[in-house]
């Protein structure tokens, strides 16, 4: 199987890369509009950074007077600071065989890349990880937009093989560093171990977890006939009757409902995403609705 990062079918094609700055503006605008209220008060971390000088006026805190500047210019200026939330974003992409079917892995990689881009642009630290067969292959944590290349190279190593064991994989997440951490899981969640236990555990430890559920209608498209279905991950075979497609659609809807309930119960962000839709639409509409982008 050719991986999603091959030259012929690179998920990060030029058109996609060229669209990111425009999307960033849209995302920044979202941040400006929604303001501070979007973040939770219990968030740890963040840093205070110098913003600008302004002339001293009565009532200003004398601790903020820039004395070296007064020595150089003879005028009193005060430093203005702004507090910035600094996040450690971990983007976990399900790299199992089921994701390689019907364009889900490609969509997940593009989303992860875009989220990394926005995160780095906003001054956050970003780490990408590929989960499969219970293992977690994580990149180094990077900061600054200049490190996007590293993130992209790492994501291109996705192979789309093996089985999904998300709880086992998420348990291998690197330890918490300084500041708050956001964990974004991108998966089709077609597994007995769909990571709920680990996700619940992460939220209890203060991580902000978002689950981006990649959904493809083709996953349950079946000919109206008797077929032998072979599980892409386990190789298990099962003979299905003509009602397979309709029952799969019902099962898919049921799982979404379960996940919504789980997400509400554990304060987890959850968004089902149609893998067949353009990445831009997923980013600006679906993810905004899901509260992932501000």
């Amino acid at each position: 199987m050719s991986g999603p990062g091959t030259a012929a079918s690179s998920p990060f094609d030029e058109a996609f890369l060229a669209s990111l700055p425009r999307l960033e503006i849209a995302a920044t605008r979202l941040v400006a509009r929604e303001g501070e209220g979007g973040r939770r008060a219990d968030r740890r971390g963040g840093r205070v950074e110098f913003a600008e000088h302004r002339p001293y006026v009565a009532g200003d805190d004398p601790r903020h007077i820039d004395w070296p500047a007064f020595a150089r210019s003879g005028r009193l200026h005060v430093k203005e600071f702004e507090r910035r939330d600094e996040l450690a974003i971990v983007l976990v992409v399900d790299d199992s065989a089921s994701m390689a079917m019907n364009g889900k892995l490609r969509a997940a990689l593009r989303l992860a890349y875009a989220l990394a881009y926005f995160g780095l642009a906003a001054g956050h630290r970003v780490r990408a990880a590929l989960a499969c067969d219970g293992s977690l292959r994580a990149s180094g944590e990077v900061a600054g937009r200049a490190r996007m290349r590293d993130v992209g190279s790492f994501l291109l190593g996705a192979r789309g093989e093996g089985a999904t064991k998300l709880s086992e994989s998420l348990a291998r997440l690197p330890g918490e560093g300084r500041g708050a951490r956001m964990v974004v899981v991108l998966s089709d969640l077609w597994a007995a171990d769909d990571g709920r236990a680990a996700i619940a555990s992460r939220t209890r430890h203060g991580d902000e977890v978002h689950v981006l559920h990649l959904v493809a209608a083709a996953d349950h498209a079946m000919p109206a006939d008797v077929v032998v279905a072979v599980d892409a991950e386990t190789g298990e075979r099962r003979v299905l009757g003509p009602d397979a497609e309709s029952s799969a659609a019902i099962e898919s809807a049921r799982r979404e409902t379960d996940w919504r309930a789980f997400a509400a119960r554990h304060r987890v962000g959850y968004a089902p995403l149609d893998a067949s839709k353009p990445t831009e639409e997923l980013l600006l509409r679906t993810l905004r609705d899901a509260g992932l982008l501000r």
Binding site: D225, V227, V230, A232, R238, V239, L240, A244, S247
Partner: peptide, 26 residues
């Protein structure tokens, strides 16, 4: 040449589907 073989993302999606015998395929 019995029933056609279809590779699916996960058999979990077809938990509720009825099962049958390959020989019943026309």
């Amino acid at each position: 040449s019995g029933a056609p073989v279809v590779r699916v993302a996960s058999l979990l999606a077809f938990e509720g589907a009825s099962t049958t015998s390959p020989s019943s395929a026309p």
